[in-house]
Write a protein that binds this DNA or RNA. Structure first.
Lengths: 242, 242
DNA sequence: CGACCGTTTGAGTGAGGTCAACCGCTGTGG
DNA sequence: CCACAGCGGTTGACCTCACTCAAACGGTCG
């Protein structure tokens, strides 16, 4: 049976995933390892939890960069507009992941972040965070890792689009999302994609029809179950071998 | 007439591009704005300039991460190996650009860096650099910008591959390289790609035959001149409108 | 209830991949 | 010094994968 949305279920408890009570953020604002002084500073920096309704934006392309964000709950997509006006989905950000790191580059957000469902984000003013990084070594390390991870993810995404067939791209996408949910303590087998077929196609460099056809094919082969945007991965092994 | 390799020519002098005498690094180790104390620290951190012959590697996928690198002269490609063994070119790094930022993520280099020509790289030990970032605010800011720029570049690359036709991809690639040379004080119109057609194809998600055909088409239309890997952009405007 | 949006599925087409032949340059060994 | 092998590049012919266009369905909201 398919659940309508991903939920922590028993995974969090059983797999002993650390819980950041202040903002449920995974490793971005996870206090482990921080000196008490630095911890209280961090809490002072992260002062707001901002709710974002489905379809609303957290920031828009061109906005002046002031804050980083961390997804507290829900999920968001980032879209970039090309020179010719066409829009493309360039990122998917799940609960516990960071948002807005690309704005540091030239103090302007290059993309627009849109909530895929009613969500909540932590607002983290960049300047104070940078100061904190200078004082607490662990914090700086965490910041660098976070940015480096984003670089690795983007590179993987470019490879995904460039070197894989559409079947492989869909598989890679599903497994990527799955592993990201697992990392945050949610079920890696059942989750809700929340994106439309068009969003997925835009993200993976293919048309919405092809997305639909490919998912249908996988369903018929018994690799996945799905109704609408809810997905359940039935056969990981078989899925992995294309 | 086509030059065999990109060279500073008169651009550097005439356009007043800052020159970093210690390692010709553009903004990565460009001392402008650093306090004298921080500057001497920086020089202490960047202790080695390592020569790399064409085809040699600076680091390999799987190597433990210790150092960042900055390209002093020449150019390198980064390649990643997919699960199925196929290799893909994931990055191109020109003189003055950074290398290895993706290794911070989990203390392991995820890709292999290979020199496209006889080159030279600055070796920058990460730990001391991080300490310096904690002490000098400008240095931290620079570091963050550098990583954020890399994120933006990778996102652009994913969009390039995902949303553009092969013609558009080639144009976008040529203009990208061109603007990067301009930024470093080299001629934006004449440069040497150094990569094989296969490398370019791998980087742009297409076959080497298609790369060759497309470049030939552009040459016949008078948009570019080229012999071998040397390129001269003749008509920027016409090239830009696909 | 009807309009609309997202999705599914089908049929036809074309952009780009595949396979193959050939050219020119470079390096190597007889 | 020349012959030859090997690599990178170009071009052609053919084919296929994924896009385009089109139709129809189901759920949701006013």
């Amino acid at each position: 049976m398919l659940i309508p949305a991903a939920r922590p279920a028993s995974y969090r408890a059983s797999r002993n995933v650390p819980d950041c009570s202040s903002c449920a953020l995974g490793h971005l604002c996870m206090p482990n390892g921080l000196a008490p002084a630095a911890l209280s500073r961090l809490e002072a920096v992260i002062h707001t939890a901002r709710p974002v309704k489905r379809g609303e934006t957290v920031f828009r392309a061109g906005d002046v960069f002031h804050n980083l964000y961390a997804v507290r709950s829900g999920s968001l997509k980032t879209v970039s507009t090309r020179a010719d006006g066409r829009e493309q989905v360039t990122g998917l950000h799940l609960a516990g992941e960071a948002l807005g790191l690309d704005g540091i580059s030239d103090d302007t957000h290059p993309s627009t972040a849109i909530a895929l469902e009613d969500s909540s984000v932590c607002v983290i003013p960049y300047r104070p965070l940078a100061s904190l990084c200078a004082e607490a070594d662990t914090m700086q390390r965490r910041m660098h890792k976070l940015m480096s991870e984003q670089i690795v993810r983007e590179t993987a995404q470019a490879m995904r689009i460039g070197a894989l067939t559409v079947d492989e791209r869909i598989v890679s996408f599903l497994l990527d999302v799955s592993s990201r949910y697992r990392k945050r303590g949610y079920s890696p087998a059942e989750f809700n994609l929340r994106m439309t077929r068009e969003d997925i196609g835009s993200y993976l460099g293919m048309t919405l029809e092809t997305v639909s056809r490919t998912l249908s094919k996988f369903r018929k082969r018994g690799l996945i179950e799905m109704q609408g945007r809810a997905v359940r991965i039935v056969d990981f092994d078989e899925l992995q071998r294309v």
